[in-house]
């Protein structure tokens, strides 16, 4: 690692002012992407602003029809939360399958969403559920938030405060994970809210997380795994690498989508 100065503010507001004042500062959430990247000298921030003491960025609350999760809430906390399990069981399930137990004790929803790794799990949930990312400056709908590979709509100095999800029990997540990295080779999140259906796919897209309109249309006719029979995702625009080529990932999208629907309809 290259040298940096370290700061640990107690509130999001203090964090924002440090971020503005310090040259070349970066936010540190759980650190499970940033620290390895710094060790490899692929990132060399001049200052780290550690958010782990910002109590106002933590916690899970139910606000009417919405489930609100603070940015510094860990994956383990989301997975174990009775509020999450009740409001959106698929989201608790997703959190319980990120990385491994140690990673889940450190990694946070805000960090995952801000990094927008094309193989991360949370982006698929936010996109399919129509979540809202609340920052210290504004509110962003998931579809405007995720703007490309490791790219988000966040401005310089903008901090994610919380993520708000409309509650639904009719949702499911299935992923085929890379056994070494534990990231999704393909992950599919399916959600039904009223008559709205969304199918969001992570791990597979050249440009990061995306939706699959053909599957959504088929599921709109009938929300059952059978509706996806014979439906194939094209390999165009799909990632290929040493772990899986584009054809294989495209095939997995169909398989994982069916499993996600089975989970959403209680047939898994």
């Amino acid at each position: 690692m290259y040298a940096f100065t370290y700061h640990r503010p107690a509130t999001a507001r203090q964090a924002a002012s440090l971020l503005a004042k310090k040259e070349d500062a970066k936010l540190l959430a759980g650190g499970h992407t940033l620290l390895p990247t710094m060790k490899q000298r692929l990132a060399s921030p001049g200052a780290l602003v550690d958010l782990s003491s910002c109590a106002d960025l933590k916690g899970i609350t139910r606000k009417g029809r919405n489930l609100v999760i603070g940015a510094m809430t860990t994956h383990a906390e989301v997975a174990a939360s009775p509020e999450v399990q009740e409001a959106i069981p698929a989201l608790a399930y997703l959190a319980s399958h990120i990385g491994d137990p140690h990673v889940r004790h450190r990694g946070t929803i805000g960090g995952s969403v801000a990094n927008n790794d094309p193989a991360a799990d949370y982006p698929a949930a936010l996109l399919a559920l129509g979540a809202t990312v609340v920052t210290n400056k504004r509110k962003l709908a998931a579809e405007e938030f995720f703007s490309g590979l490791y790219e988000t709509a966040l401005d310089e100095g903008e901090i994610i405060v919380k993520v708000s999800f409309p509650a639904t029990s009719k949702a499911g997540y299935a992923k085929f994970r890379n056994p070494a990295s534990r990231y999704a080779l393909v992950g599919v999140f399916v959600a039904k809210r009223g008559s709205e259906i969304a199918v969001a796919i992570t791990g597979a897209g050249e440009g990061g997380v995306f939706r699959w309109p053909e599957a959504e249309a088929a599921l709109k006719a009938r929300f059952a795994g059978k509706s996806l029979d014979g439906l194939k995702h094209t390999a165009k625009g799909i990632n290929g690498d040493i772990h899986a080529d584009a054809e294989y990932r495209a095939h997995l999208i169909g398989v994982m989508a069916k499993q996600a629907v089975a989970q959403a309809t209680g047939k898994a």
Binding site: Y6, R8, L28, G31, H32, L35, P36, L48, D50, S52, A76, P101, H102, V103, H105, R106
Partner: peptide, 18 residues
């Protein structure tokens, strides 16, 4: 792996100052 405030974490991916 060590326990940090009672939870297992990877000490190679945690800053001492944190």
């Amino acid at each position: 792996v060590v326990h940090l405030d009672g939870k297992a974490v990877k000490a190679c991916t945690t800053l001492a100052l944190s």
